[in-house]
Write a protein that binds this DNA or RNA. Structure first.
Lengths: 165, 165
DNA sequence: CATAAACATTTTATGCTTGAAATATCTGAC
DNA sequence: GTCAGATATTTCAAGCATAAAATGTTTATG
């Protein structure tokens, strides 16, 4: 492998192997492009077919998995978005009658959020379509390739900073 | 292979092979997670190191490649974001002195946008860091895997709707 | 030349996103 | 019991994103 030779600069913006680095940069741009492409198609489909958005769908998907509902903070940690962001999305979903806020016993700070019956029904319809849309857009990737790609993506997502190691 | 039996519903949300479809759905979630992870790290790094954002960097990167600058509409088409969006980002970059708007001769509708000298310098510093950040975050993917992954991502991004075919 | 259509850009309304500050409540140390 | 710190949520300010409407300019057609 590498011989650890002659890397003595402050490393602030140095890169181990320039060619590999450029290749990774191109890979990142493609990763971003593919993701944005799929996201854009989903956005449009959700809008035209259900008059809703991806973030709203994400919230509903998270809640559909847990009958008892989730606290606002749990929701924001599951979805990995900020607390304040969840507040706004949930507000609108409650207005639309697909979610309810339920006070938590013995802790007046917290609220649980749950899907209503109407919310569950709406979600089921959207989830089926969502899966079909994805299936079509990722149709170019066949079963044999999925595993390898999944592993690589997982490594990217789980990589933590050198600082934290 | 499939025997084409009994698929007689309207196909509105049917899926060819349920198992493959679920696998693709999981792959999509991982793709999204990896992309969001990298984007989030970049966002934070850009903010703390340069007090700027990814969209601003993207605009500067597009302009750095073209000495003569780009028209607003070219910029929005290169970056694949809406016209109105570009207006706001460019406004702020002009306020900060990294971009200038230059009227186009013989067409008073259009404006060209260019990096200033200060903008070019700032961009060079940011681009070096950016590459190093990506190199570190995608370090888990090695050269031998990059090609295959790139190809798959390209297929995903280029896939057009059946409608358009 | 008039004027309709096309084009380039900006404006507007709405929603998502973040980080940070504010508000309210709970818990534990004393 | 009091009160400092932790916890849960909301509010706020700023920026990014879209689609659609508005504004101004150019071009082509009669």
């Amino acid at each position: 492998m590498s011989d650890h030779r002659a890397i003595q600069s402050d490393q602030l913006d140095a890169v181990s192997d320039p060619a590999a680095s450029k290749a990774r940069l191109r890979l990142w741009l493609k990763l971003l492009k593919a993701t944005k492409h799929v996201e854009g198609e989903l956005r449009e489909s959700f809008r035209t077919d259900f008059d809703t958005t991806l973030p709203r769908f994400d919230v509903m998907a998270a809640l559909d998995r847990v009958e008892a509902g989730l606290k606002m903070s749990e929701l924001s940690s599951v979805l990995r978005v900020s607390n304040g962001n969840v507040t706004g999305i949930v507000d609108r979903l409650v207005d639309d009658g697909v979610l309810v806020r339920v006070p938590v016993d013995h802790d007046r700070r917290a609220t649980t959020v749950r899907l209503t019956r109407a919310g569950k029904e709406q979600f089921a319809a959207m989830a089926a379509k969502h899966e079909a849309w994805i299936d079509e857009m990722l149709g170019a990737v066949d079963a044999s390739e999925i595993q390898a790609m999944s592993d690589q993506l997982e490594r990217i997502a789980s990589k933590r900073n050198k600082k934290d190691t």
